[in-house]
């Protein structure tokens, strides 16, 4: 059943969205612990989707369908996860930086991070540095994720990091950056803790930064 669920997520067929909910319900009814369904089906399936997206074997539409399917299963599993005491183990404040209104990539990152078990506070697009600072105070996240699609807004990433430093928050959060123009070298040059090329890698790097 778990293999079926993973395959349904990987298939990125529109009908798999409903199928995943049903499969998750059946797995729960059969007594499979919700956490095991997440760990053995949802996460490996989305990791595989991310790997194929990164290799340009599949594209945004396929990832969106798979992410919706995964989210459907997660919705079914969440009450059971909460009952079992598996609360989100960390929080990430996420947003597209100031000057950039692109959110498709950032939304994919949010879905992957939720699938990986994080609480995601999504600040949206065109987020000013001070809004990140305020959200860090309000939500006490372990991680901050900055997204940019435009080369012209990469400097806003640096400005956001500078604002986090100026607010005295830098030692409380690990900062993850990503987006089409962002390279590992750039991430290092602005003082970020991690960099990801795509949504699946973002989840992997987030877990690594959290020591998992």
């Amino acid at each position: 059943m778990l293999a079926q669920l993973a395959e349904a997520i990987r298939s990125h067929r529109p009908e798999s969205i409903a199928a995943c909910r049903a499969l998750a319900e059946r797995a729960l009814a059969a007594g499979v612990p919700a956490a095991r369904i997440v760990d053995a089906a949802l996460i490996p399936a989305m990791a595989d989707v991310g790997r194929r997206f990164r290799a340009d074997e599949i594209f945004v539409p396929e990832v969106l369908v798979s992410a919706k399917a995964m989210q459907g299963a997660l919705d079914v599993l969440e009450p059971a996860l909460a009952d079992a005491g598996r609360e989100p183990f960390a929080t990430i404040v996420l947003g597209t930086v100031q000057g950039d209104v692109h959110d498709i990539g950032k939304n994919l990152v949010a879905m992957m991070l939720r699938g990986a078990g994080l609480r995601v506070v999504d600040l949206g697009v065109n987020v000013a540095p001070q809004r990140f600072v305020a959200a860090i105070d309000a939500h006490r996240p372990e991680l901050v994720g900055l997204s940019a699609l435009l080369t012209t807004t990469m400097d806003a990433m640096r400005a956001t990091l500078d604002a986090i430093v100026a607010a005295g928050q830098r030692d409380r959060v690990r900062v993850l950056v990503g987006g089409a123009p962002v390279t590992a070298a750039w991430a290092m040059s602005i003082g970020a803790d991690g960099h990801a090329d795509d949504a699946a890698e973002a989840a992997t790097v987030a877990l690594r930064l959290l020591g998992r």
């Binding site: 990164r54 290799a55 340009d56 074997e57 599949i58 594209f59 945004v60 539409p61 396929e62």
Partner: peptide
């Protein structure tokens, strides 16, 4: 230009 050398839009 994709990593597999194909020419496609972001949506494939």
């Amino acid at each position: 230009l994709t990593r597999r050398g194909e020419i496609r839009t972001m949506m494939g």
